[in-house]
Design a protein around this nucleic acid. Structure first.
Length: 331
DNA sequence: AAACCGGGGGT
DNA sequence: ACCCCAGGTTT
C-alpha cells in the first residue's frame, strides 16, 4: 500500500482519513485521485470545499471530506504548513480521533502510541479473552490501555502495521485462519472455541424508513438543484427538489401547488431502495420539463432552488442515490 | 452513553 | 438480513 512507503505526514493523514470505516480496496482509487489533485497540503487547502466533496463522491461519511479540507486550511494558516508531531497535538485536528492520531504519530514520527481499530479490537479480544463491549467507553478505554501496554518502544510503526494486518488478513471476523496461526496455542478464543463470539459488540442499529420524492425541473439547458444543509445526511451535497413524506407520492400530488399547465413529466424512475447504515431510503424521482422561463423562475423562487446548466451538474457533489436516479432516467 | 454519519462487500 | 470495514463527532 502506497502510504506505507513514506513517513510524509500528509500522505499518512490523507490515507488514514480515507480509510476510516472503509475497506482498503474501496478507498484505494480515491487515494490516488486525491494525491493526483492535491499532491501536498497547500494544494488541498487552496481547493474549494465543493471540489473536495466532488472527489469524495461515492465514498460516504462526507464529514470526513469537509473536515479534511478544513484541517488542510488550518495546517497551512496556523501551523505554517507543518503537521503537529505528537499524538496529543494531532488529536486536536478536526476529523482526527484516537486511531488516526496514533497512526500518524507512530507511522510518521515513531511515537510509541498504539492504534486501536477494528482489527486490533478483534485480535486483542480473542487472544486475551476480553469480553468487554468494544462499543462502550469503558471497553474502549480497556483495549486502548492494553494496546499501549503491548506496544514496543523500538519500532512502534511496524508493530502497529503488523497487528492491523494480522487482523485484516488472518484473524478475520468470519472463519479466522486458526489452523495456520502462529499464536493459536496462546490464544484464548482458539482454546475456548469462542472465535465467533469475540469481540463483543452489543450496539444494535435501528434503521428508519424515509421516503424521498425528487422533482428535477428542467428548462432548456437549465436544471434546478439544492445543496443539503443542516444536521441531516449528505451535508454539502446537491440534490433535486426533495419532497420528503411518509410514503412515495404520485407525481400528480407532488405538482399540485405548482403551475401544472406549464409542466410535463418527461421521465420517472422506479422506486429505488437505498440502504444506509441507519436509514433505509425509498426514493422515486421525476424529470419535469418546464415550458416557460417565467414558470421556471417562479418554481426556483418558491422552492428555494439554485439554477445550473445541465453540463455543470456533473461537477457538483451528489449522493449516490442522485446518481442512480439520473442513470435510471438516462439523463 | 447513545445517536448519528455512507456506501460497498461478504456470508 | 446481518455483519464488517485501517472511526469520529455531536447530542
Amino acid at each position: 500500500m502506497p502510504w506505507r512507503e513514506t513517513q510524509n505526514p500528509y500522505i499518512i493523514w490523507l490515507s488514514e482519513i480515507l480509510l476510516q470505516q472503509t475497506r482498503v480496496d474501496q478507498g484505494m482509487p480515491y487515494f490516488y485521485k486525491f494525491i493526483d489533485n492535491y499532491p501536498d497540503v497547500s494544494k488541498l487547502a487552496k481547493a474549494e470545499e465543493r471540489e473536495v466533496l466532488r472527489l469524495w463522491e461515492g465514498l460516504g461519511y462526507y464529514s470526513r471530506a469537509r473536515n479534511l479540507h478544513a484541517t488542510a486550511k488550518l495546517i497551512v494558516e496556523k501551523y505554517s504548513g507543518i503537521f503537529p508531531q505528537s499524538y496529543n497535538e494531532l488529536l486536536k485536528l478536526k476529523g482526527v480521533g484516537p486511531y488516526t492520531a496514533a497512526a500518524i504519530a507512530s507511522f510518521s514520527y515513531n511515537e510509541p502510541v498504539a492504534v486501536v481499530d477494528g482489527n486490533v479490537y478483534r485480535v486483542l479480544s480473542r487472544f486475551f479473552g476480553i469480553k468487554d463491549d468494544i462499543a462502550s467507553p469503558s471497553g474502549v478505554k480497556k483495549f486502548r490501555e492494553l494496546a499501549n501496554a503491548l506496544i514496543p518502544i523500538k519500532d512502534p510503526s511496524t508493530y502497529n502495521q503488523a497487528i492491523m494486518e494480522f487482523g485484516a488478513l488472518h484473524c478475520v471476523p468470519v472463519k479466522p485462519k486458526c489452523e495456520n496461526c502462529p499464536v493459536s496455542a496462546q490464544c484464548y478464543a482458539f482454546g475456548a472455541n469462542e472465535q465467533s463470539s469475540l469481540p463483543v459488540k452489543n450496539k444494535k442499529i435501528i434503521k428508519k424508513n424515509r421516503h424521498f420524492n425528487y422533482l428535477a425541473f428542467v428548462w432548456k439547458d437549465k436544471i434546478l438543484m439544492k445543496e443539503r444543509k443542516g444536521k441531516d445526511i449528505w451535508q454539502g451535497l446537491y440534490e433535486f427538489y426533495n419532497n420528503e413524506s411518509s410514503e412515495i407520492l404520485d407525481p400528480g400530488n407532488l405538482l399540485e401547488k405548482l403551475p401544472s399547465s406549464e409542466l410535463t413529466i418527461v421521465k420517472s424512475s422506479e422506486v429505488m431502495k437505498h440502504i444506509l447504515t441507519h436509514q433505509i431510503l425509498f426514493c422515486k424521482g421525476h424529470i419535469i420539463n418546464v415550458n416557460s422561463k417565467s414558470a421556471f423562475n417562479a418554481i426556483k423562487g418558491a422552492l428555494d432552488l439554485n439554477e445550473f446548466s445541465i453540463n455543470q451538474i456533473n461537477d457538483l457533489p451528489k449522493p449516490v442515490l442522485i446518481q442512480r436516479f439520473l442513470k435510471q432516467c438516462e439523463f
